[in-house]
Design a protein around this nucleic acid. Structure first.
Lengths: 197, 197, 197, 197
DNA sequence: GATGAATGAGCCTTCATTCAT
DNA sequence: TATGAATGAAGGCTCATTCAT
């Protein structure tokens, strides 16, 4: 059956992407050797090229898959939240927990990101959508008088910055507190800054 | 005379480091070719190896020099500031303006950083000292009751995160406001969060 | 029944050979990819190896089949001709028309031939028999006084050379006259050279 | 001095071209491995790429150099000849002797020629100029009544065909007569065909 | 010191051939 | 018998590093 074939093929691609993520996270794009990816995936080097046209394509597949996953998760959690404070918490916590689960991906994002000329806005902007949604929420809250009026988009990006920095510190082992605690600090800080006096 | 020799030698190293910074900023570490660095420095490829043992060492030299410069500038401006709010402003503004002047270095920091296994704490922590000094200032201010009590070090890092993010956005052309304005937003936001209620 | 099996098998071989001829004519031996041959033959790559041991063997099969065909046709037409002049015409015309019909094969012969170390005399000499028969005819005619005495074999090869060159030019699009006309020129030229003064 | 550098460099290129000619003559373009060329030239593989951008470029360099040399020699000898018969002899003999001296080049020309997509008219037509000059001479002679009127260009190509075939047979060891003798036969044959009755 | 030619290890990619289904 | 996924040897090319001048 065709479907079975496709599933097997999809499974192989996933295996390769998984191996690649691990390798790229450790060595970066340039340092990540296709042979090593193949090895880690438990297949021969040539087989890799049955599923991907080039090393670059593998790299892109890793980013595409993980960014999409991360974005979707973040958006869903934000939508599920009711008020602004909860939305900020959702944004931060979603990202923090996702980073915990996908350390390798976040290491790639933090590390080599930007160098490889994959740096199309496509990749640089993967956070844009969640951030803009956060900005909308801020704007709404301000209009409703729940918080003081602020330049919503800029503020939203600052929240994203703090989240990113927190993730980075956690990845580097600089923090041994649970994600929730880090998130809470961040949310408290932000909320204090926004609260109508 | 030995001294003269040394000065010439030091000068050459600086030329190479300058060329390397420009190349690495454009191409990343792996993509930055020694030949190109030599070219841009106006010397022969072989000559590079009279002053540096390897490409890695050049890369490290770039980071060392720029990080040191950046750190010193930031600390000085912070020390010159009187109260906490001014110190926060000094920290942020120093970094923003420095990034403006040293775009290439900051591009390196933002982009490839982490991948090359130079990622010893030495490099990851170049900001630590300014941040800790900021933390001290926060702590002092809290003790004096100028702001509410907060986990000073964590908050200091959040300020650093926001600064970093702002720099990144500026480098990517996402912001066309003058650095001072971006800094003011950031300082205002932070101060609002810290101010004793 | 065995025979039926064999016929089917023979049919498959022929299909593959046809596909291979087309591919090799376009890309040469080295550039001709087994996958493409299989594709063009409408079968799977693995199947090719059920009928041929290797790519080389396919190549040889193409040559064997086409050379045999070409040789047989040429000999038959020569035998059907009565006198020397007609035999020369038969030789030349047979080859020219055959080249027209089997462009791909002749392109292979003209192009890559020699490189692949298939260049055993077996292939280099496929023309030998027709040429020798031509030589015999020349010798007979000389003995009968119809033409002046000449080193028959050498002359026969010269006729073959001119034919080959004419074919090549036609394949390259250098000639838009019908084959018969080219043949006539060649025959006329040769006959003028041989005719008893 | 710059000139010395250039001479050395030119010398290296020549060495590589020589090695490449030998390798390509034996193995063809696809079969000729850069490593082997380097070996035969007594240098490292990487060094080859200091002088040529790619394998293709090396191949082209071989053809360019040899074709030019061969063409020039042929033309010169033809120009030195007085009457048509001498010119035909010059054409044929020049090519035969040249083939004797440059066996490897002629083997390349005979063997793989055409396959590699270098088959621009540039290469296919390297003989055009000498042949056209021969055609002119034929035309002149016809006008002067020294020979019967013939389609000069076509005839000139036939002479080229016979020469090419003779060379090929000599390269294959099919002929042990000295070049002059083969040439004389060819010239005699041609002259007999052209001579006014 | 300065040069830049030479080196060769290393990596991506291709493709003939094999083999499990 | 047919398939096509898997294999891995092979080869073109790059580039950090060395070294003779």
């Amino acid at each position: 059956m065709k479907t079975k074939q496709k599933m097997v093929s999809e499974f192989r691609r996933a295996e390769i992407v998984d191996a690649a993520r691990s390798v790229f996270a450790r060595k970066g794009f340039a340092g990540g050797i296709v042979d090593e990816i193949a090895n880690e995936a438990g297949i021969a080097k040539g087989t890799v090229y049955l599923y991907f046209r080039s090393k670059k394509e593998i790299y892109r597949a890793v980013l595409d898959r993980d960014m999409e996953f991360s974005k979707k998760g973040t958006l869903e959690r934000m939508d599920a939240a009711g008020n602004l404070k909860d939305k900020i918490r959702a944004f931060t916590l979603a990202r923090l927990e996702n980073a915990e689960a996908k350390k390798e991906f976040f290491r790639i994002m933090d590390a080599e990101f930007g160098s490889v000329s994959f740096t199309r806005s496509q990749y640089r902007d993967w956070l844009r959508e969640p951030v803009l949604r956060l900005a909308s929420a801020i704007e709404d809250a301000a209009r409703r008088g729940e918080i003081r009026p602020v330049p919503s988009e800029k503020i939203a990006w600052l929240v994203a910055d703090m989240t990113r920095g927190t993730i980075r510190r956690r990845l580097l082992g600089r923090s041994d507190t649970p994600p929730g605690e880090d998130a809470e600090l961040l949310v408290g800080f932000t909320w204090a800054a926004l609260a109508a006096e």
